[in-house]
């Protein structure tokens, strides 16, 4: 059984809103991304994982515990960053952090102070007087300082400036090295690509694809783009029989897809041609997803 297992999770809010038959398996130590546009069902899925809402059908189990029925017990292993952050009580950030660490029964104030320093957070402010970014930082400190085995985060980087986002990504990498299991939703593909092992794509409440990022990062089939100086050379190259994805005759350009094993062969062939340039076309997760969405639509 997987560390976190979501089985046939269905919650129908009517009018096509909700999630339908969502099944995911997240292994221990994995960083799992969850992407989709706004309203796709990311938050609804996460609320089920946290036991805040009850499924119409299916279930979520975390460490073998039912996330709905044993919700309180599950929280011993889980830290959470909500999508919309508001802190209870009328206290300062520091007081809230200390209280939360105490209530969670794990984590340490020392770690929290390190994180506060790192994120340049003024935790002495009243939680109600905090800006969106400050609240986000406080939430991040809260989640990371409590030293949980599992981190569930609903769009944790919203409201962070690019610099802070980088720091946060580094922090997550640290957590991953510690063996933590991380589940995060996002609509920013770049950050997902940077740290996730696997990414599930949700659209209109249904999982349309689970992408193993290794396949994108270490794809051995690569695409190269080249431009020839003469039309003659251009035509001659086409006739060589490489897998050609696309041609642009007006610019004398060719897009060739080739496996890494054949790359030497290609370079040998190209020696005899007069080239303007030759470059690898990198595939980003974003491009990949855009393709997926396009196909779907």
């Amino acid at each position: 059984m997987a560390y976190i297992e979501i089985e046939h999770l269905t919650k129908d809010y009517g009018k096509g809103r909700g999630i339908y038959d969502v099944s995911l398996e997240i292994e221990k130590g994995e960083v799992y991304g969850f992407v989709g546009i706004n309203g796709a069902g990311k938050t609804t899925t996460i609320r089920h994982m946290m036991g805040f809402i009850k499924p119409d059908e299916g279930n979520v189990s975390i460490k073998g515990l039912d996330a709905t029925k044993s919700s309180a017990e599950v929280k011993r292993y889980v830290s959470y960053i909500p999508g919309e952050i508001n802190f209870p009580g009328n206290t300062t950030g520091e007081e809230f952090l200390k209280e939360h660490i105490y209530l969670s029964g794990r984590g340490s104030w020392e770690r929290a102070q390190e994180l506060i320093e790192l994120l340049q957070l003024d935790a002495t402010a009243n939680v109600h007087a905090m800006s969106k970014g400050m609240k986000q930082k406080t939430a991040i400190v809260t989640a990371l300082a409590s030293d949980a085995d599992i981190l569930i985060m609903d769009e944790p980087t919203t409201g962070l400036d690019p610099l802070m986002r980088d720091i946060f990504i580094d922090l997550l990498k640290e957590e991953k090295e510690k063996g933590k299991t991380i589940f995060m939703s996002s609509h920013i593909f770049q950050e997902v690509e940077e740290i996730c092992d696997r990414v599930a794509v949700i659209q209109q409440g249904r999982i349309i694809e689970v992408v193993d990022m290794k396949n994108i990062r270490y794809n051995k089939n690569k695409e190269y783009r080249m431009e020839f100086k003469s039309e003659e050379a251009f035509k001659q190259f086409i006739s060589l029989g490489y897998q050609i994805n696309r041609v642009k005759p007006e610019d004398l350009q060719v897009f060739v897809q080739i496996h890494d094993e054949q790359i030497n062969e290609l370079i040998q062939s190209l020696k005899s041609f007069d080239l303007v340039y030759f470059k690898e076309i990198k595939v980003h997760f974003e491009d990949y997803i855009t393709e997926v969405f396009k196909e779907d639509v």
């Binding site: 805040f52 919700s71 929280k75 011993r76 959470y80 508001n86 939360h100 969670s104 029964g105 809260t142």
Partner: peptide
């Protein structure tokens, strides 16, 4: 008020039963 503002999420993300 805690449900609407979402601050209850923090209370319920600790091992305290609903």
């Amino acid at each position: 008020n805690e449900v609407d503002s979402g601050s209850l999420a923090y209370t319920l993300s600790t091992p305290i039963k609903r």
